[in-house]
Nucleic acid binder design. Structure first.
Length: 609
DNA sequence: ATAGGGTTAG
């Protein structure tokens, strides 16, 4: 047996008895155990790798520091280990240490792909570009791993998309990872159309569909709300047998939640034979806004399936609680979050700020906000929106300045929040200053929503003429949010003619907006034009639209009571009216004189025909 | 020792 093997390996046939090949061959086959010389750091590097895999970061570092010789493999294992434990700054520091090290170890393609992943997660274009230069210097750009990692890094950093495309173009022979990475870059940027364009190019190029590129393509469909493409790709999922892949089915499920409908999504959810925590999270997030009770039901049945809720679960569950505005439930779940050690997660803390504000406990929002050790732009915005909705406009504006001072760059949504706060606090000139700052200092192009905020800001303060001039000067056609804000100002300041103009513009673009008909009819009513009032009401009935009633609710002894204006049902309703009467008395005592002129004509009070 | 896919807060 052994002699046959020797004979069958021609290039190892010994020429002389003392040749290395011969001795190695003899010793490995004839005398076991074999002696295979290994690099001195081989064992230690493997132990480092397993330490990181089990989260023993300190142990890994200690072992590395004690190694007498540290080769490129050991350094790369450290950098990759830190990255895989989400310690990206440590990974970056490690890389810099490596470059400064006296032993003068040269980074290789493995080092570069690992450190680029750290740059990507830090979102640091400057670090990434520096590494790009070093990669060129060290001659590792021939590696498709390095090229793909570079493209991934550029694609995930802001303002990096052009460079990601440039790297992609420079790759001679693209592999499936190159394509997937580019599609993902477009999609995560919010450009789903771009993602699908690359997906089509990929297919034209002859690349095969696989679960990776299919799931990101479905994600691109949901980001642009395309039912047609989404369903088309879902069909190929079945055709290719990808429905056995949980990630693929999770993105299909998400697409159903966002673009098709919750009952269809629910069918898809129940049809999945294998589910993971992400499947459940997707469904909970799907229900969070429109059916928060169902979201909570799913959350409570999740553990029976042997799954453990994670921070994504809790952000959605807390958002659901915020939408129900039930403080007691929110506090209970907050307790569960702390117990499970997710209290310090950034996303969870942000959701808690929002939840407490919406449940009426702005003090708890503040407490969480102040105790957060790092805050992102969402944390600041949530707190500002919370203050704004509690009528603390000044605090919200102060927070904006503190945010900028702390080095967080404001985005468009922060400006929406601060402008709304200014609007409600009557800080008109401050608001206009922020608008200027947004355009000139932060290069944010105002969109419909921002113009709507400014129109609202001016309109509320009675500066209706300026608001109208702004609308005229807009670089694009104002949509219903802008005209809606203007209409609100006309209604508040009883400017019937301008109000009619604004209403007709809203109805031209979106004839289905029930609120506009109501606002317009109130303007007519306030003007004593009852014929016009009746005509508009009739038009509204003709559209088949009904303005959704504003629902209020209150928790008393763990029981939630909900009601709308004009409610006649429910045993508790007498108590509601009694409470309202008392509130009315208190308001009169406090000197508040309610303006009933507009409210009286609200649809909810209308008798059926 | 080595790269790619899914869920997430205003």
């Amino acid at each position: 047996m052994i002699s046959r093997k020797l004979v069958n390996i021609p290039h190892l046939t010994p020429r002389t008895h003392n040749s290395t090949h011969y001795r190695t061959l003899n010793s490995s086959i004839l005398f076991s155990p074999p002696f295979v010389p290994k690099p001195p750091s081989f064992l230690a590097t493997n132990v480092i790798k397993s330490y990181f895999e089990t989260g023993l970061v300190r142990e890994a570092r200690t072992l590395f520091d004690e190694m007498p010789e540290r080769d490129v493999v050991a350094w790369s294992a450290m950098i990759n280990g830190f990255t895989s434990c989400n310690l990206h700054v440590n990974a970056w520091t490690m890389f810099r240490e490596m470059l400064r090290d006296e032993e003068d170890v040269k980074p290789n393609e493995y080092t570069f792909s690992s450190v680029l992943k750290a740059c990507k997660s830090m979102g640091s274009l400057s670090c990434g570009a520096l590494v790009h230069g070093l990669a060129l210097k060290h001659g590792v750009l021939g590696s498709i791993y390095v090229r793909n990692a570079l493209m991934d890094m550029y694609g995930m950093c802001c303002d990096g998309m052009d460079r990601a495309c440039a790297v992609f173009e420079e790759i001679g022979v693209k592999n499936s990872v190159s394509w997937t990475t580019l599609i993902a870059a477009y999609t995560h940027l919010g450009d789903g159309h771009g993602g699908l364009r690359v997906f089509r190019e990929m297919l034209l190029d002859g690349a095969e569909l696989n679960p990776f590129n299919v799931s990101i393509a479905i994600r691109a469909c949901s980001s642009i709300g395309s039912q047609a493409y989404g369903k088309q790709i879902h069909a190929t999922v079945f055709k290719r047998g990808f429905e056995s892949s949980i990630p693929v089915m999770n993105s299909v499920l998400d697409m159903y939640c966002r673009c098709i409908g919750l009952s269809e999504a629910d069918q898809c959810f129940h049809g999945m034979t294998e589910k993971d925590i992400i499947t459940w999270n997707t469904m909970i997030a799907g229900y969070e806004k429109s059916d928060p009770y169902e979201a909570l039901n799913l959350y409570s049945s999740l553990e029976f399936e042997g799954l453990t809720p994670n921070c994504f679960t809790f952000t959605s569950v807390i958002a659901a609680v915020a939408n129900m505005a039930v403080l007691g439930v929110g506090e209970q779940i907050h307790g569960g979050i702390i117990r499970r050690g997710h209290g310090d997660d950034l996303g969870v803390a942000n959701a808690l700020i929002d939840m407490y504000a919406k449940c009426g406990s702005i003090m708890n929002s503040c407490k969480i906000f102040n105790e957060m050790h790092d805050k992102n732009v969402v944390s600041w915005t949530s707190m500002m929106v919370g203050y704004g909705s509690h009528g603390h406009g000044k605090e919200a504006v102060d927070l904006f300045d503190k945010m900028v001072a702390s080095g967080v760059r404001p985005d468009r949504i922060v400006f929406v929040a601060v402008l709304n706060a200014c609007s409600h606090a009557g800080l008109v000139d401050e608001g206009l200053q922020y608008f200027k700052m947004m355009v000139h200092s932060y290069n944010i192009t105002p969109d419909q929503e921002i113009y709507g905020c400014i129109v609202d800001l001016l309109g509320r303060a009675g500066r209706v003429k300026e608001a109208y001039q702004l609308i005229e000067a807009m670089p694009f056609m104002p949509d219903e949010s802008v005209w809606g804000a203007f209409l609100g100002a006309c209604k508040a300041h009883k400017l019937a003619e301008l109000g009619k103009l604004a209403a007709s513009r809203v109805l031209d673009s979106r004839p289905s907006v029930a609120g506009t008909y109501l606002a317009l009819s109130s303007i007519y009513a306030a003007d004593g034009k009852w014929g016009d009032f009746a005509r508009i009401r009739k038009l509204l009935k003709g559209t088949g639209n009904k303005k959704e009633a504003g629902r209020s609710w209150i928790e008393v002894r763990n029981q939630t009571y909900s009601f709308v204006a004009g409610d006649k049902l429910g045993v508790h309703i007498v108590w509601v009216y009694e409470a309202i009467d008392m509130l009315g008395l208190h308001m009169k005592e406090a000197g508040y004189n309610p303006d009933l002129q507009c409210l009286i004509h609200d649809l909810e009070n209308e008798e059926p025909d």
